[in-house]
Computed example of a mutant assay.
Amino acid sequence: MARLILEDVCKSFHGEPVVKGLNLTIEAGEFVALLGPSGCGKSTILRMLAGFEPVTDGTISHGEHCLSSAKQHVATEDRNFGMVFQSYALWPHMSVKDNVGYPLKIQKIHSDERNKRIQEALEIVQLEDYADRLPAQLSGGQRQRVALARSLVTEPDVVLFDEPLANLDRHLRAKMEDTFRAFHKRTGATIVYVTHDQSEAMSLADRIAVLNKGELVQWGTPQALYATPKNTWLANFIGRGSVLRVSEIAPQQYVNSTDLHGLIERYSSEGAFSSVLVRPQDIHFVSVDGLSIPVTVDNCIFRGERYDIGLTLKDGQQVLTYSDVPMTTNSLHYIRLEQAWSLESES
């Protein structure tokens, strides 16, 4: 296997840029998610990787081989990439084994080899007992596993997923996440996974490319994106938290409790300011003391295992924290902010 390299990749439709100067290096065997809101360009990137769309500029390479550039385009069928679509795309009149084996039939693979590969692919997705059933006789999760098996049967170098769980309910999505995790561990395949669901990307991927308006916002591990987002947009997009305006401070650094409380106290809406991210788990209710901040409860929402508590500071800024017990709206409390992460300013 070889790494996938996207270098200064651009894509425009009718002169309108959709992907702008994208640079990514995806290591062999890595599970990578392309994450972002609708219209950010992530599905277009996947289609360029698959060969369904040529690049407008830049290059896409797999190891030493150029797949796409402004002057060259390798056809989809010559890339040895598998793809799993959101819609399953199964033939309704074909059995599970015939759907899985269809790409091999097109390639004119001998029946003995074809049957062997079909059996192996069905074992990976744990559907060997369903080989003779029709798609209509399967659940949504089982149909998605058939589509996964079909993508594997050609022994692809890379498997591309285009929002494969979007049509499933929450319970099935959780089960399919387990299936994808086990599949990746068992096969070691390189996976590029498109989703708009940040919790899905965070739970599955080794690294995530977060996109917005056709541009790469940040590229890193789920842990790094959660703990050290680049700017306010990403801080609000990844995980839950509160972005506060404080007195000016250098960006991209942790701020301890003492310094943070001082920055909040010195903040003025008329002066220069910075933005910091505070996660809910870093806000604690305390007794009044020199470091405590008075807050008023805006709302209290029961989430099953906890309560989400919305709070307002004396300057009107709002923060979110958690509590094991309910709190009364408009009641006065005191909190301490344990730490924050300073964000880059946005023009």
Results as ranks from 00 to 15, higher is better:
A205K: 03
R173F: 05
Y226N: 04
L337Q: 08
V325P: 00
V278L: 06
E163I: 00
S87K: 14
L127V: 06
H14C: 10
K314S: 15
L244S: 01
A272V: 06
T154I: 15
D298F: 04
S61F: 03
S61D: 11
I264C: 10
H196Q: 14
G82K: 11
R173V: 01
H184L: 11
S69M: 09
R150V: 10
R279G: 00
S345R: 13
V153P: 07
A33Y: 02
N167L: 07
T25H: 08
Y334N: 15
M83R: 09
Q253W: 03
R145T: 08
Q223A: 15
E123D: 12
K175R: 14
F237S: 09
D206P: 06
A33G: 05
G15V: 10
T228G: 00
D197K: 03
A224W: 02
R181G: 04
A235M: 13
N212Y: 12
L138N: 01
S331G: 07
V146H: 05
L122R: 03
S12P: 07
M176F: 01
M83V: 13
K314M: 07
S139R: 03
T154K: 15
F85V: 11
S287W: 02
H14P: 00
V278D: 00
E177A: 12
G316C: 05
V192T: 03
T258N: 09
E123A: 10
F237C: 11
A50K: 01
E215T: 14
D129E: 13
Y226S: 05
N330I: 01
